[in-house]
């Protein structure tokens, strides 16, 4: 008998995490996913499940080619319609990728009618706004079936990421097998099996400045949020926000596609997510105030000044 997610989930601080139904820890039960996923492979598992079940006919995500001769690891947004291709998009890219722009391709070129979108908190906000007011996107709202967010503190421009990896870590971009941020460090895993890390503080100068006016750490308006923070290595913290998100995750648990645990049983636990969410909110609220002193508009309020 599969577990009832409602028995496993706990509620956290909504001030920090945003409105939600519950939080738990999970990982995919599919070895193929875990081999390439960033953490617990939740996003990939949901996408594969949804495409196979016919709940989605398109998955908008980002793909990076580690072997690109000019710009290795530079991501581009893609529309995936074949569940066998989902794993090409697995893993976090740590640089900007205009995922929202691919929604146009999903609807027009690929004629998708039920789309799953995954993106950073700011991208989730962009999609949600479009679902309410799809200014230039005819019949868009009903075609988005699931919006997944990933936990995000900040992002790096591509050349910023390259500087971190090549100059600070001393690894060529084309040699990288995987990036990670955790335990206060930026990690690079090479194709040869080497592991290089630098303190996360050293990467701060390369952060995208536009990230510093964002106070959303946990993609507060998504259907489901996933991220590594709070869960042990190889597992993901999952924040369920909407009835639709809960229905999908419960069905996946019932079908044996997800292994779940209470987040209260694991280290470092939900407290760390709440703490870091609050750190982002406080830090960036201060940045917004400082910009206001220069008579610069608040994010989302530029239109009132023009």
């Amino acid at each position: 008998m599969a577990e009832d997610l409602r028995d496993v989930m706990v509620k956290g601080d909504e001030e920090a995490l945003g409105p939600h139904i519950g939080v738990f820890t999970a990982r995919s039960t599919d070895g193929r996913i875990l081999k390439v996923s960033q953490d617990g492979g939740i996003v990939s598992a949901v996408a594969i499940y949804g495409l196979e079940e016919g709940i989605f006919d398109g998955f908008v995500a980002s793909v990076a080619d580690p072997d690109d001769p000019e710009e290795p690891w530079k991501p581009r947004p893609v529309v995936i319609t074949d569940p066998d291709e989902v794993l090409e998009a697995a893993g976090t890219k740590y640089t900007y990728c205009p995922n929202v722009s691919a929604l146009k391709e999903a609807i027009t070129t690929k004629a998708c009618e039920s789309i799953m979108f995954v993106g950073t908190p700011c991208q989730v906000r962009a999609v949600r706004k479009l679902q309410i007011v799809p200014l230039g996107m005819r019949h868009f709202p009903e075609k988005v079936k699931l919006v997944m967010g990933i936990i995000c503190m900040e992002n790096f421009p591509y050349e910023g990421l390259r500087s971190i990896v090549e100059e600070l870590c001393g690894v060529w971009m084309r040699e990288v097998a995987k990036f990670d941020i955790g335990k206060g460090k930026f990690w690079v895993f090479t194709k040869d099996g080497d592991v290089v890390s630098i303190p996360i503080d050293e990467t701060h100068p390369f952060e995208g400045e536009p990230c510093h006016v964002c106070t959303d750490y946990c993609a507060e308006l998504s259907d489901i949020t996933a991220g590594s923070v709070g869960s042990p290595d190889g597992w993901s913290t999952v924040i369920v926000r909407t009835p639709k998100g809960l229905e999908i995750l419960q069905d996946m648990v019932d079908k044996g596609l997800l292994e779940v645990k209470s987040i209260e049983e694991v280290k470092p636990g939900l407290g760390l997510v709440e703490k870091l969410a609050q750190v982002k909110k406080n830090k960036n609220a201060k940045e917004i105030e400082e910009r206001e002193e220069l008579n610069l508009p608040r994010p989302g309020e530029v239109f009132t000044k023009v």
Binding site: H20, R128, K129, E220, D223, T242, E301
Partner: peptide, 19 residues
């Protein structure tokens, strides 16, 4: 979304976020 944000409330209501 950075030029004009419609507020979180209409979205929370439309998609039953946290319900």
């Amino acid at each position: 979304p950075r030029f004009l944000w419609i507020g979180d409330e209409p979205i929370i209501k439309a998609f039953d976020v946290g319900k």
